[in-house]
Design a protein around this nucleic acid. Structure first.
Lengths: 207, 207
DNA sequence: AATGAACTGTAACGTTCAGTACATTACCAC
DNA sequence: GTGGTAATGTACTGAACGTTACAGTTCATT
């Protein structure tokens, strides 16, 4: 809680540097000295604002979550009811994968999983900031299609989860494990189309 | 590379203790002193056998992967061609989830993801020992059903990936992030049934 | 039983790092 | 300006840890 303008800037700079260092090195390996060195300030400031290494990490994650909320726009928010479902879902899938594989997001995900045992509330916050909002949006869309008699989706919440898993798990798994090569470009898009078709066939009204 | 019987036992005991410590604390936080303290030996032995902390971690992971290979039996290996597909897949799904959520496996997965940047070849080895073998088995089964004209599965490899993602991602995601409550018992089984049905509908021969 | 190699315990070294103390400097209200 | 508060730089402490050296012990073989 800085009280001056310079303090605010310092705090923001510290959070940015902390993000870089923590996400590059992981929580345990990261050192506060390195964070301080990158912004040119002093350790005393870190402890004045954040109290401890854990505090710095926690506020950094919270800050990133807020940025995720601010930046994550999904398509189909107010999509026309008559729009082609396959195209709407495909656009949604592309956006989801794009968000999950954005630069730095994988590192953040790794850090979160690595420290999930020590900071369980941070994982919750991340879930609320990211996946939960996408799921809610998709679930609402699916419910609408169900009620309109276009899809057979009696449990839109579950179906939304399954769509997300179908779409994002494969590239995310590879990215989290650092496996090469990563699917991208046309290969990735073909995979997404395959997933969307499987999902749509699975939810199609059975004749 | 121990040359005596006592040495072999020591090495095995060290690997076991290393597993516990590394998986409880994570790589960076774990200390060799604690590993040694748990088996009552001496640090010199660790450095004689494994050379370094990284070496110990690497061999521990390799050892765990071998155990995973030895223990992972999947159903449906030689399942009767006429068996009910839904039941075969459901059994498979249950087994996959059971394997992924086995005690200690989540911790191992966390450690692997956390250190994926530093030990990329370990992630590959883990993938080969676990997921890859399950995928190959499932893919073979799906190919058979496709050729028999029962399912519409022109790309059984991709379909196998999608089935796995559909089935294991939700509980695994929650477990990796330490989220409570974990789905289990009847709730989990209902989720698996829902996933299997979605997949089967998606691959059903379209009339 | 003897011998040499494999193994183990103790103790230390050098480094890294979270956290702190304190004196100094920049900022803001009046 | 001036006084008071916030911010900063420096230097330090104490502990933890990876790694190594060395001396003593156990073991397999003859």
């Amino acid at each position: 809680m800085p009280a001056t303008r310079r303090g605010e800037l310092r705090r923001a700079a510290l959070l940015d540097a902390a993000r870089d260092v923590f996400l590059e090195q992981g929580y345990a390996r990261a050192s506060i000295d390195e964070v301080v060195q990158r912004v040119g300030g002093s350790k005393a400031t870190v402890y004045q604002y954040f109290g401890s290494k854990e505090g710095l990490f926690g506020e950094m994650i919270a800050h990133q979550c807020q940025q995720l909320i601010d930046s994550a726009e999904f398509p189909g928010r107010g999509s026309a009811p008559g729009a082609d479902i396959e195209q709407v879902l495909l656009q949604f899938a592309r956006r989801v994968v794009q968000l999950f594989l954005a630069p730095g997001r994988i590192a953040m995900h790794r850090a979160m999983i690595a420290e999930a045992g020590r900071f369980p509330e941070l994982a919750e916050r991340f879930y609320d900031a990211g996946p939960k909002r996408g799921l809610a949006l998709l679930s609402g869309y699916l419910r609408g299609q169900h009620e309109a008699g276009v899809l057979d989706c009696p449990k839109p919440d579950w179906s939304a989860v399954q769509f997300m898993n179908l779409v994002r798990t494969y590239p995310m798994f590879r990215a989290l494990h650092g496996m090469q090569p990563m699917p991208e470009g046309d290969d990735l898009d073909e995979f997404l189309q395959h997933a969307v078709r499987l999902f749509l066939n699975g939810c199609r009204i059975q004749g």
